[in-house]
Lab assay of single mutants.
Amino acid sequence: TDVTFHVNGRNLHLKGADEELLRRIEELIRRGADIEELEKAVKEWEK
C-alpha cells in the first residue's frame, strides 16, 4: 500500500506499507507524535 500522511505541514510518504505499519503510524499520530517519531517508526519497520 502506498499512502501519504500529512503531519504538521510535512508529508510522510510510505511505499509498500503493510497493515501493521499503518496501524502503528495512526496510533502515533493519535498520541500527537511529531514527524521525526513517525520517520523513526518507519525506519524500524523497514529493517
Rank of each mutant, 00 (worst) to 15 (best):
V42D: 00
A41Y: 15
E36I: 06
N11T: 15
W45K: 03
I35W: 11
D2L: 07
K47S: 09
K47T: 11
L28H: 03
R24W: 14
K40H: 11
L38Y: 01
R30T: 07
E37K: 08
V42K: 03
R10P: 01
V7T: 02
R30Y: 10
T1C: 11
N11Q: 14
L38E: 00
N8I: 01
E37S: 08
E44V: 12
L28M: 14
K43L: 12
T1W: 14
E19H: 12
K15M: 06
L14F: 04
G32I: 02
L12Q: 00
N8A: 05
E46S: 14
F5M: 07
R10G: 11
K15L: 05
R10N: 09
K40S: 11
E27Y: 15
I29A: 03
D2V: 08
L38A: 02
D34T: 09
D34A: 07
K15T: 07
L12F: 15
V7H: 04
D2I: 08
I35L: 07
L22G: 01
F5N: 06
R31S: 09
D34M: 08
T1N: 10
A33W: 13
G32H: 04
L38R: 00
V7Q: 03
K43C: 08
R23E: 05
A17F: 05
H13P: 01
T1D: 07
E20Q: 14
E27P: 02
E46D: 12
V3I: 12
A41N: 07
N8Q: 06
E36R: 05
R30V: 08
L28C: 03
F5Y: 10
V42Y: 03
L21N: 01
L22D: 00
K15P: 03
E20I: 13
V3P: 10
H13Y: 13
R23N: 08
L21I: 14
E27D: 11
V3C: 14
V42C: 04
R30C: 09
E46T: 14
R23Q: 07
K15G: 02
T4K: 04
E36S: 06
D2P: 02
V3T: 04
E36V: 07
D18M: 04
E46V: 13
E46F: 13
R31F: 09
A33V: 07
F5H: 08
W45D: 03
E19P: 15
L38Q: 00
I35R: 01
E37D: 11
H6Y: 11
A33G: 04
E44N: 12
D18Y: 02
A17K: 03
